[in-house]
Design a binder for these strands. Structure first.
Length: 423
RNA sequence: GAGCCUGUAGCUCAACGGCAGAGCGCCACACUGUGGAUGUGGAUGUUGUGGGUUCGAAACCCAUCAGGCUCCCCA
């Protein structure tokens, strides 16, 4: 123990069981994205820090990124997010892509943060975006992809909800309150924090950033008005599209959803578990209008969202929504009786594998009892025995480990019999 | 970057200044050609790491590492 080198803070080791969870999430993410016709892509894992310096906040670049000098003296960063890479990739081929672009990705990201439940320094994230269309219907499609994913992992609408708001709507409300443009960011952050602070402290905070009593009262009445969306044509169209897409049960309007990101300009949304130990968002995203211009492209509007593997993984585990773990992809174990039968056992394995049957072999002679215990732990469905008696008669014993029944078949019939018993 | 809580066998935890333990799991045997169940026996360890206080430290103090809760942040 003493001399063991620990894992780097905030990283996780994926033992087969955790790897199965990651693969499960990846499979569901891919299925949801592909159901809507999205193409898979990826960017580099290491980027120049300048890519993020352009648009991402100072906090991110200076404090929350893994940045270091490479051997040539350039500052490089382990990517903390994908959107700037996506924007650059789109901008580089802006005139040859077919629009709308519908792309998705699932890969590793790094952020130098304080690890907690639901937050690691190295994590996997699903990113999915549609670019080249600026419409409430496009926004609705992304929300529908998110809802499709939630449904596919068993998070029904009573367990998870996607909350939606619109930046433009909020801006027009803030205009009515005469909150100056340069205060908007602070107000957004204030709104973001509301559920986490007690009321009196929140009020005090509001005064601190320069709101007066009338503005504070106005802000509170906006934030408690869950019918506000009806005043926005954009959101009205958005909700009717969701209705048609069949996912409106998942989606609720909530004026408290702001999202800290600077680049969101229209619809914003975040999904939360309705009850449970985690108060963190499962996924979040929105519409951004100006991102491409910042990396040298022509203006192009996009909408997308991201989902980390950590929070959804914890929720699926806590809700018991994961399929039972299979220790091995093999369905069959071929036991090894003694050294003299080793070649026959291996030949039998080869036959099975050639027929497409995943097959484990016990790698050394041992008591059958021990081999059957191993088969049990590995949860294989069938165990095959080829001992001296069987070898002499040209037979193989096949035991069904679930029912406990076993049959003797001729060597030539093993493959078809195994296939029959597995089907 | 700040505050607080936790770290003991593979796992969950007990012992809270006086011989480091239990349950589960693991291994062996009963059962030398058949798993899950049962019984019997067995092995667990630098008490996260380093230092200090003390006759004596898993326990108290300091430092450090990791995890968790909160602040911050969530691009």
């Amino acid at each position: 123990m003493a001399n063991k080198i620990q894992t780097v803070k905030g990283t996780r080791e994926f033992y087969p069981e955790q790897m199965a969870l990651r693969t499960f999430i990846y499979g569901k993410v891919r299925a949801a994205a592909q159901a809507f016709g999205y193409q898979e892509y990826d960017g580099p894992f290491i980027e120049s820090i300048d890519l993020y310096a352009a648009k991402s906040g100072e906090e991110l670049v200076k404090k929350q990124s893994f940045t270091f000098e490479d051997r040539g003296g350039d500052l490089v960063t382990l990517r903390p997010e994908l959107t700037p890479s996506l924007a650059r990739m789109i901008a580089a081929k802006q005139n040859e892509l077919t629009y709308p672009v519908r792309w998705w990705s699932f890969g590793p990201f790094w952020r130098y943060e304080q690890p907690q439940k639901g937050r690691a320094r190295e994590f996997f994230q699903w990113n999915i975006d549609m670019l080249g269309v600026n419409s409430p219907q496009a926004d609705a499609e992304l929300v529908a992809v998110a809802a499709t994913f939630l449904a596919s992992v068993g998070l029904t609408p009573d367990k998870a909800t996607i909350y939606v708001n619109n930046r433009r709507l909020m801006d027009s409300e803030f205009d009515k309150l005469q909150i100056p443009a340069e205060r908007r960011l602070e107000v957004s952050n204030l709104v973001d924090r509301r559920s986490k602070m007690d009321a009196a402290k929140w009020d005090a905070n509001a005064f601190e950033i320069g709101l007066n009593q009338v503005q504070l009262d106005g802000l509170k009445s906006i934030l408690s008005n869950f019918e506000l969306w009806k005043e926005s044509d954009e959101l009205t169209s958005f909700f009717s599209a969701l209705e048609a897409l069949g996912v409106s049960a998942y989606v609720k309007y909530d004026p408290n959803i702001m999202r800290g990101l600077l680049y969101y300009t229209g619809t914003v949304f975040e999904a939360f578990e309705t009850s449970g130990s985690l108060k963190r968002a499962i996924l979040g995203g929105g519409r951004y209008d100006n991102l491409l211009a910042d990396v040298g492209g022509q203006p192009l509007s996009g909408v997308g969202f991201a989902m980390g593997d950590v929070v959804i993984g914890i929720i699926l585990q806590e809700q018991g929504l994961l399929p039972s773990f299979n220790p091995t992809p093999a369905n069959v174990l071929v036991t090894l009786f003694d050294g003299t039968l080793l070649s026959q056992a291996f030949e039998l394995c080869a036959q099975l594998r050639k027929a497409g049957i995943n097959t484990l072999v016990y790698p050394e002679p041992a008591k059958l009892q021990k081999q059957f215990k191993f088969a049990d732990k590995m949860k294989v469905k069938l165990a095959l025995v080829l001992g001296p008696d069987e070898a002499e008669q040209g037979l193989v014993v096949i035991k069904n480990l679930e029912s406990g029944e076993q049959v003797q078949v001729k060597r030539e019939a093993v493959v078809t019999e195994v296939q029959k018993m597995l089907s």
